[in-house]
Design a protein around this nucleic acid. Structure first.
Lengths: 203, 203
DNA sequence: AATTCTATCTTGACGGTGTCAATATTGCAG
DNA sequence: CTGCAATATTGACACCGTCAAGATAGAATT
């Protein structure tokens, strides 16, 4: 077992695959990721990855799941510095958009049709997403109590609609409908105004 | 030239292709559409479609463009019956969601990454989408004047953000993140409340 | 230390994809 | 009737995901 790359067994191929895949989709998009190119990049034969992931779908699920962990960590860090509730919410929105656009391909796997419609989300991925969503809804309840979000419906519905708004804004950019980054910042600002002013209307 | 299908020249292959393609993506999603299957369905050889569409991308662009026309027609019909402005807006929202979910695959081509990011939108498609968007912005201006949408920003920004909200809501369902139709109608209702109550907050 | 077992990796193969090049057929204009 | 342009065809190529069968290496057991 030398330190040279000519060894038969790779070491931690699972991890290497995930990282190489992340790099590829960052550069070439999910469409540019093929199992064969991936294997090649890691320096291994075509079918080696199949001993670590059942199929391509499973690999993409793993990437998405990583994304959920990553995102959750980021948001947890945000909440730690205890700013006023409303400011925190605004920071959350910015952070959410930041993550979506910075890791657009991962975001697409997390919330896009590739896995949820065209593919088959793994049980583990479903669990991750459910947990993330649950945390979000709980926070929405808090935000409602602090008068940042409206009270005219349950935390679930308010959480769903405000999330939908954010998600839609993110998608317009990461799907290539909008490209201009200048528009982006102004649209985020206006979206925050929209979401935050809702409480004024609730009874 | 008999009426039997054994003729060498097909007649109006362009149209047949578009209709067969529409049928396929409706049943099997965009992922289920291949040029070969399409040709086969129409009863023509693999490469025949290439005399009518430069490549698969071009065919998808044509489908998307049809979608824009279809959608525009639907919305024009809606406006003709001159209901009160606010009611009209609510009907618009419902109609928009209806269209998105009823023709989810076409909607995806119109506003999704398949063409706008992964693919290459044709000039003709760009034009169609631009026109649709322009019409929307003009109507937003009207809605602002009638106090249905807020006045705290330009028609462009308000149009962008409200559209983003609608788009996001649609995507959550047509991408398979949400599936329950019951949730859907309640979420639409709440989203309308969100959008329509914004004016109360604007100066 | 020798042997077995198991995890890992390999090559070979199959059916699918988009699309180019070269060829054949047809309908129409001259 | 002839020739031309539009349309359709077969053949080929390079990719793709993934299954099956065999090779290799490291760990466990004797």
């Amino acid at each position: 077992m030398s330190t040279l790359k000519l060894q038969y067994h790779h070491g931690d191929l699972t991890k290497s695959l995930l990282e190489a895949a992340t790099a590829i989709i960052k550069e070439q998009g999910v469409e540019g990721l093929s199992m064969r190119k991936l294997a090649d990049k890691v320096g291994v034969s075509r079918t080696a990855p199949y001993h670590h992931f059942k199929d391509k779908n499973a690999l993409l699920c793993a990437l998405a799941e990583r994304g959920f962990n990553q995102q959750e960590k980021m948001l947890a860090a945000l909440k730690k510095q205890d700013h006023p509730t409303e400011q925190l919410f605004k920071e959350y929105v910015c952070a959410y958009m930041d993550y979506a656009l910075e890791h657009s391909e991962i975001y697409d796997l997390m919330y896009g049709r590739t896995l949820w419609k065209a593919g088959t989300p793994s049980d583990s991925l479903k669990k991750s997403s459910k947990q993330t969503f649950k945390a979000w809804i709980e926070w929405v309840e808090e935000l409602q109590e602090h008068g940042v979000l409206p009270n005219n419906n349950t935390p679930l519905r308010i959480g769903q609609t405000t999330w939908a708004s954010l998600h839609g804004l993110a998608r317009l950019f990461l799907d290539g409908i909008y490209l201009d980054q200048t528009d982006l910042s102004e649209m985020i600002e206006q979206m925050i105004k929209n979401l935050c002013s809702l409480r004024l209307a609730s009874t």
